[in-house]
C-alpha cells in the first residue's frame, strides 16, 4: 500500500497521549492520597505508611472503568508490535503478558489494602511503579519500531 509511512503519525502521537494519560493518572492517585503543593515525596511516604482507607464501593468505582480503559489501551499499544520488523514477536509477546499482568496487579492492589490483607501501602506503590516501568518500556519498543 502506498504512503504507509503516514500511519507513523498517529502511532507517534499515541505515545505522547499515553504518557499524558499516565502522568494525569498518577497525579490523580496522589491527589486522592492527600497530595497538596509540591510535597510529592511526603505523599509517597504517607501512602507507604498509612494509605487512605477505601471502601469496596470506592474501589469498584475506580477499578471498573480502569479494567476497560487499560485493557483496550494496552491492546492498542501492544498490537502495533505486530508491525515491528526490529523486535521479535516472541519478545513482544512476553512484554505484552507482563504489561497486562502488571496492569491487573496495579488495579487490584488497593483491594488487598481495603480487605486488611496489607496494612502498608507499599504494595500499591510497588504495583504502580512496576506498571509504569513496563508500560514505558513497551512505549519505547513501539517508538523504536517506528
Amino acid at each position: 500500500m502506498k504512503n504507509l509511512h503516514l500511519y507513523h503519525i498517529p502511532i507517534a502521537y499515541m505515545l505522547v497521549y499515553v504518557i499524558a494519560i499516565l502522568v494525569s493518572g498518577v497525579w490523580l492517585f496522589l491527589l486522592s492520597q492527600g497530595l497538596s503543593g509540591s510535597d510529592m515525596l511526603e505523599t509517597f511516604i504517607r501512602v507507604a505508611n498509612l494509605p487512605e482507607p477505601k471502601s469496596l464501593h470506592n474501589f469498584i468505582e475506580v477499578a471498573a472503568p480502569h479494567m476497560f480503559a487499560m485493557g483496550t489501551l494496552l491492546f492498542v499499544i501492544a498490537h502495533f508490535m505486530l508491525f515491528s520488523t526490529r523486535i521479535s514477536h516472541k519478545f513482544s509477546l512476553r512484554i505484552s503478558y507482563a504489561l497486562f499482568v502488571s496492569a491487573l496487579f496495579n488495579i487490584s492492589a488497593y483491594l488487598f489494602i481495603s480487605f486488611g490483607l496489607f496494612v502498608s501501602g507499599w504494595i500499591k506503590l510497588f504495583s504502580m511503579g512496576l506498571f509504569v516501568l513496563v508500560l514505558v518500556f513497551m512505549l519505547g519498543l513501539v517508538a523504536f519500531s517506528l
Binding site: 499515541m14 497521549y17 499515553v18 494519560i21 494525569s24 493518572g25 497525579w27 490523580l28 480503559a69 489501551l73
Partner: peptide
Amino acid sequence: LLLQVHIDLFMSLFTIM
C-alpha cells in the same frame, strides 16, 4: 478537573486515532 482531563485525553486518543 484533573479527572475530566484524564478522561478527555483517553477519549480524544481513541476518537482521533
